[in-house]
């Protein structure tokens, strides 16, 4: 159960070395991303910020031009969270196919990482909406979707905690994880596509990032993914270790 993977290395380095390497690299990249974003990246013009816009009855001033810097951190986190839950769903499917507890552990750990990222996304996003829309919370498709995603991920852990039988818990969690991973994009689509005239739907097309912006964004993206991967790996290793202790205990008893 995972033993072969732990021994295996990549390009001559063991996984351990890679883990710390990537953790460091990820940290450096995200830092560089922030530095670039604040010091070098030009402000995104256009994209609704060219003049003042009326959002939620409030005229948005130029302060949003600076506040948008948070996107260089926020968007990588958001995208990573989504990628990680896809991994969780993948491990869940593998678990249902093989009934190997190792995949259950992987799926659970990946969902934990998702929870971390989703909460980070909500916090950073919220900071931004506070400035841009002058409100802590707006029921905008993206926010709504993340709110739902948070509830789904929280529901995953609530479900886990309320099932006593270990195998049943793993099966239920896997099924729910798959449902959650499918539900999240649907929820994003539907909140966007369903006609509502009540709320302003703020659509922002990518609108072409310039060289240095793109660089900062990509650095942040890769940095975040590296950090997410290392956190995943560390937690996974911890869980596998405790699993092995259990197995050894059981073996000693009989």
């Amino acid at each position: 159960m995972g033993k072969t993977a732990e021994k295996a290395g990549f390009l001559g380095f063991s996984i351990d070395v890679w883990m710390y390497l990537l953790l460091g690299l990820g940290a450096v990249l995200t830092t560089v991303d922030l530095v670039l974003a604040f010091l070098f990246a030009p402000l995104v013009l256009g994209a609704g910020a060219g003049g003042t816009a009326v959002i939620n009855g409030v005229a948005v001033s130029n302060q949003l031009l600076l506040s948008q810097k948070i996107f260089f951190f926020h968007v990588p986190v958001a995208i990573s969270s989504f990628l990680v839950i896809l991994f969780a769903a993948y491990y869940s499917i593998r678990f249902l196919m093989t009934r190997d507890k190792g995949f259950d552990i992987k799926a659970r750990v990946a969902t934990e990482v998702t929870l971390m990222l989703v909460v980070l996304t909500l916090i950073t996003g919220d900071l931004w909406t506070r400035y841009e829309w002058d409100a802590w919370w707006v029921w905008e498709p993206r926010l709504t979707t993340y709110f739902i995603l948070t509830l789904l991920v929280a529901g995953y852990f609530v479900l886990r905690n309320s099932v006593e039988d270990e195998e049943r818990r793993a099966v239920y969690a896997a099924v729910f994880c798959i449902i959650a991973a499918v539900d999240a994009p649907i929820s994003f689509m539907i909140t966007r596509l369903v006609p509502t005239k009540m709320h302003p739907v703020v659509l922002r097309s990518g609108g072409g990032l310039t060289g240095i912006q793109l660089l900062a964004f990509l650095l942040g993206m890769f940095g975040m993914l590296m950090i997410a991967w290392v956190v995943f790996k560390l937690r996974e290793r911890q869980e596998f270790a405790s699993e092995r202790i259990e197995a050894l205990k059981a073996a000693r008893e009989s």
Partner: peptide, 9 residues
């Protein structure tokens, strides 16, 4: 807890 977020869309 499971039903409401899943049904939301």
């Amino acid at each position: 807890v499971l039903f409401v977020p899943v049904m939301f869309p």
